[in-house]
Design a protein around this nucleic acid. Structure first.
Lengths: 213, 213, 213, 213
DNA sequence: CATGAATGAGGATTCATTCAT
DNA sequence: TATGAATGAATCCTCATTCAT
C-alpha cells in the first residue's frame, strides 16, 4: 500500500489492524462513558468496563494504561468535540448576541445527546477539581481553549460597542458558569421551567448584564 | 438532673455526658473537615480522621455511622451556618440590590474563612452530585432553603418593580451559579482580576441582567 | 503496673495485649516458615500464610508490611539464632580444632531441627543473592557477624601456631562454603555417605587443609 | 536436499530452514541469558526476551514451550559447555594436582567471560534448588556428569597414592563447593584478596586437605 | 513460520467496619 | 464509653500463554 507519488505508505489508508485497533479503542471509550455515567468513577471497576466493551480485562490494558487514563480520555474527547463545535459555530456568527445563541444552543443540544458525558463531568470534574487524583492537562487545555475563545469574542464585541466594557475574563467565566448551571439544573430535574424558556432567560440575563444600559 | 417544675429532664440543662458527647462530635467534625479538605473524600481514611480528632478508630463509630455520614455532617453543618447567615443578613437589607451585596459579601467572607469547606464542597459536592454515593437529604434541604429564600427575595423585588419580570427559580439558580463560579475561580487561582473588582463585576452583571432596561 | 522503685511501668512485665501481639507475630513467622519451605517464596501467597497462622489476611498486614518482610523476618530470626549459638559455642572451646567441631556439630544439629529454614535459605538466599528483590541488611548483618567471628578464630589460631598462615577471610568463607555444601547435599539426599562420616571428612579436610604440613 | 547416495535427507547438510531455526533458537538463548542475568528470572518477562532477540512474543513460543524452559536451556547449555571443557582439560593433565589447577583455572576463566551465566546460576539455581518450580533433569545431568568425573579423578589419585584415602563423593562435592564459593565471593565483590592469591589459597586448601600428612 | 492482539487467572494490599475487652 | 485488633471484601494490574491472521 504505497503511494505512487510519494513512495511512502499512504497515511490516509488504514490497515485492517489499525481500523480494528481504533474500533476497540472507541468501544472501550464508549463502554467506559456508560459505566462511569451510571456508577461514577470510584464505584466503576475495570472488569465491568471491559465486559461492557465485550472484551477481557487484559485487553482493556492494551488500550489504556489505567482506569484513570480512560476517564480522562472519555472527558477529553467529549470536551474537545464540544469545544470544536463551539468555536466553529460561534465563528460563523456575526454579532455577539448571535454567538451567545449558538453557544447556548450547542450546550442544549449537547445536553440532549450527551447526558452520559455530563453526568461524569459533573460528578468527577464538575469543578475541574484540583486534587492530584484527577488532574489532566488534556482536559485543562480544552477548558482554557474554550475560555480564551469566549474572551476574544467578548473583547471584539466590546471594541465594536455591542457590549459595555466589562472585565472579559470574568465575563467569560460567568457565561460558562451560567450555562453549566443551566445544564445541571435540567439534567438533575431541579428546574420546573421548560428548557427553552430557561434558555431564553439565561440568554437575556447575559445580554442584559453585559450590554450598556 | 430533673426539672423541679415539670418533673421531666430539663432539656436546656445538659448532663456532663451530653456535653462530652457533643464535644467529641464536634472534634470529629472538625478533624474530618481538615482531612477531607487536604486529601479529598476518597483518599481520606477513618483512622486518620480519628487520630486527628485525638481518639481511636472505634470511637469514631460511636459518633458517626460511617465515613460517608461524617462527610455529609461536615458539609451540612457548614452549609446550614452559611444559609442561616445569608437569610439573616439579607433579611436585614431593604432593596434587592442591597441584599445581593450582602449575599455576595457573605460568600466572599466565607471564601476567606472557610477555604476548607469550599475545597470539600467543590471536590465532592460541587455539583450536588446525584450518584447514590453522595446523596444527602440534609444537604439538599439547606440547598433548597437557600434557593427558596432567594426566590422569595426576587419575587418581592419584581413585585416592587425593582427588577424586571424574570422566572424567579431560574434567576435564583443563576445567582448561585455565578457566586459559586466566582468563589471557585478565586479559590483555584484562575482569576487574574482582584477579588473586589471581580465581585463588583459579578454584582453588576446580575443587577443589570435582572433590571428593566 | 508501676514499679515501686522507679515509678515507671515495669518493662519486664508484659501486658496481656503485648503477649498476645508477640504470640501472633510468632504464629505468623512459623506459619510463613512452613509455607515458604514447602512452596518457595514465589509460589507462596499471603492468604495461605494467614490461614496457616489461623487468622484473616488483613491480620497478617497488622504484623508485617509485606510478604517480602515476613520472608526476611523468618530468615533473619533463624540466622540470628544460629549465629548466636555458634559464637557462644565456639567461644567456650579452647583450640581451633575444637571450635571447628562445635561449628560443624551445630550445623548438623540445625540440619536436624530446622529443615524448614534450610529449605528456604537454600531456595531464596542460598547465595545471599544480590538481586534487589531479596536484599536485606538484617540478614547480611548476621552473615557478616558469623564470618567475622570465624575470621577472628582463625587469626588467633594462626597466631598461636595451631594453623599455618592462610588468608583468614578466604579461609573463613571456605569453611562456610564447605559446611553449607555439606548441609545441602544431605538435605537434598545427594550424599550416600552417612552423616557422621561425611562430617568427619569435612572436618579433616578443613584441619588438614589449614594446618602446617 | 536429499542425499544422492542414500535417498534420505542428509543429516549433516542442513536445510536453510534448519539453519534459520537453529539461529533463532540461539538468538533467544542469548537474549534470555542477558535478560535473566540483569533482572532475575521472576522479574524478567517473555516480551522483553523476545524483543531483545529481535522477534515477536509469539515467535518465542515456537522455539520454547515456556519461560521456564528457556531458563533451563540457558543454564544447561552453559553448564554443558563448562563441563565439556572441564573434562577435556582435566583429562589432558597427568597428576591430580595438575588437574585441580586446570579445574580452578577453567572456573576462573569462566568467571571472567561468563558473568551472566553465573549471575543466573547463583540467583536461580545456586543450590540446584529442589522446588518443583525449577527442577531440571538436563541440568542435573550435567551436574552429575561433572561430579562423577571428579570422583573418578579422585579415585585414581588415591589409587596412585597421590591423595590419602578419602570418601571420593564427599571430596568431589567439597571441591565443587569450594570453587563455587570462590566464584561467588569474587562475583559479588565480597573478597578483598586478589583473585590469584585467593585461587592459590583454595588450591592449597584442597591439596593439603586431601594429601597424606 | 511469524506475528502481536487477546485472554483471564492470579495476588498483594487497603480500609471501612465490627466486636471483644 | 473507649479502644484498637481483627476481619475479609473488594479491585487494580501483570504477564505467561494462546490463536487467528
Amino acid at each position: 500500500m504505497v503511494s505512487i507519488l510519494t513512495g511512502e505508505p499512504n497515511p490516509a489508508r488504514k490497515t485492517r489492524k489499525e481500523i480494528l485497533s481504533e474500533w476497540r479503542h472507541k468501544e472501550i471509550l464508549e463502554a467506559a462513558r456508560r459505566i462511569f455515567a451510571s456508577l461514577g468513577y470510584a464505584a466503576a471497576n475495570v472488569e465491568e468496563i471491559a465486559k461492557e466493551a465485550g472484551m477481557a480485562k487484559g485487553t482493556f490494558y492494551l488500550y489504556f494504561k489505567s482506569k484513570e487514563e480512560v476517564l480522562v480520555a472519555v472527558l477529553a474527547s467529549d470536551l474537545e468535540y464540544l469545544t470544536n463545535k463551539t468555536i466553529e459555530g460561534m465563528s460563523a456568527a456575526k454579532t455577539f448576541e448571535e454567538r451567545l445563541t449558538v453557544f447556548l444552543n450547542l450546550r442544549l443540544a449537547f445536553l440532549r445527546h450527551n447526558e452520559d458525558f455530563l453526568r461524569i463531568y459533573f460528578a468527577e470534574f464538575g469543578t475541574r477539581c484540583s486534587r492530584p487524583a484527577h488532574r489532566s492537562d488534556v482536559i485543562d487545555k480544552q477548558f482554557w481553549r474554550a475560555i480564551d475563545f469566549m474572551r476574544q469574542c467578548l473583547e471584539q464585541a466590546i471594541a465594536q460597542g455591542e457590549l459595555r466594557a466589562v472585565p472579559v475574563e470574568s465575563a467569560a467565566f460567568a457565561i460558562f458558569d451560567l450555562s453549566k448551571g443551566f445544564l445541571e439544573r435540567h439534567l438533575r430535574g431541579w428546574a420546573h421551567l421548560p428548557l427553552e424558556e430557561d434558555l431564553a432567560f439565561t440568554h437575556s440575563l447575559i445580554m442584559n448584564g453585559l450590554r450598556e444600559k
